[in-house]
Write a protein that binds this DNA or RNA. Structure first.
Lengths: 199, 199
DNA sequence: CCTACCGATCGGTAGG
DNA sequence: CCTACCGATCGGTAGG
């Protein structure tokens, strides 16, 4: 499963042969097919597992969401899920491009709860005058998720080439990660609240 | 070329056989190979043509950039390039996932001018106190481009499923397009300027 | 979990 | 631009 996830994410479904997966695991091709039935069933299995882990992470944020600083908590969980395992972002992007109609249903199922949580927060905050009145909560939430997934998927691939500019000379990978997450969060927050710096 | 671009964007490079491209054009497979030499050469050709059109569009924005309202002009051209032909966004995303090291060079070559233009605008505006002081121009510009490409690539595929919410009942495709571009522009602008509504 | 094998399709070439 | 063909690899099956 791990190897299949990695290979599908890195080379795509059509670009990955079941022979290659079998080689990576150290068994023969028919043995792999015995376990999963077909290549397409393996694809479903890989996607299901990733979405199941996504569901593991959902309750965390709903608990935290009862406190203040909800926004930062949601962004932290959302970013963490993909940034800590970028192959998830690449896989979800590839699947969306490969089988849009198939992914639409799953995305509705799995991101809908998030969109609802975020949208309800936005409406509440809008009533308090904290959120810009022209924000469309649903489009906004969808856009933020797309931004996180998309930029995470290409970040490692591109070695964040254009992002090393004028800052201090040497920075560790952890610094890069934090800087990346912080900027994503900053953009999402600033484009939402009337006061761009407050949660 | 058109058919190859469309097929590579929709089904991916590995998922598209030269036979399928030949069928779409109405010629035989060896005839196609005669023109382009190999499948990989065709891939290069398709990518080169798209990047060449990107370069056609660059001067436009540099001319407009001498006037006021630079930001909106840059966003309009950037969004238009991808939103009007979403297969460009899908192709560039697939190529980045398929051959990251190969794309890094091209992206540095083709998006560097944009990043520089935007970054210089940001530094000027920062000095005037118009831009938030904590904005990292390079990371920001990279993030905006990623957001535009990523969300455009998946927008059509997903039929913007979660984005039909509470607005008026029936809206034409043009309305959707404008709403999409407007929200992208709004987010990019609001996360940059101290006053989120001014150019 | 294996060996042995299947038809279909892959990218590409020979030759005209 | 075609017909005819190449070896290699594809996903998958038979049978143990």
């Amino acid at each position: 499963m791990q190897e299949a996830t990695r290979l599908f994410a890195d080379q795509g479904y059509a670009g990955t042969s079941i022979q290659a997966i079998a080689d990576a695991v150290g068994i023969r091709k028919p043995s792999l097919l015995y376990h999963f039935g077909s290549k397409d069933a393996l694809r479903e299995c890989v996607l299901d597992e990733m979405l199941a882990r996504w569901n593991d992470v959902l309750p965390q944020v709903l608990v935290v969401a009862t406190r203040e600083r909800q926004f930062d908590a949601v962004m932290k969980v959302l970013c963490g899920f993909f940034v800590d395992r970028p192959e998830r972002a690449r896989l979800i992007l590839r699947e969306t491009l490969d089988r849009p109609e198939h992914m639409r249903a799953r995305i509705l199922q799995y991101v809908r709860p998030w969109v609802d949580v975020i949208a309800s927060q936005i409406e509440r905050a809008k009533a308090d005058g904290l959120v810009r009145p022209d924000v469309d909560g649903e489009v906004y939430a969808f856009q933020v998720i797309t931004m996180v997934v998309g930029s995470t998927a290409v970040r490692e691939s591109l070695g964040q080439a254009p992002a090393r500019g004028t800052t201090d000379s040497a920075a560790g990978p952890d610094d890069d990660r934090d800087r990346f997450v912080r900027e994503l969060t900053r953009m999402a927050r600033a484009s939402l609240y009337t006061n761009g710096t407050a949660g």
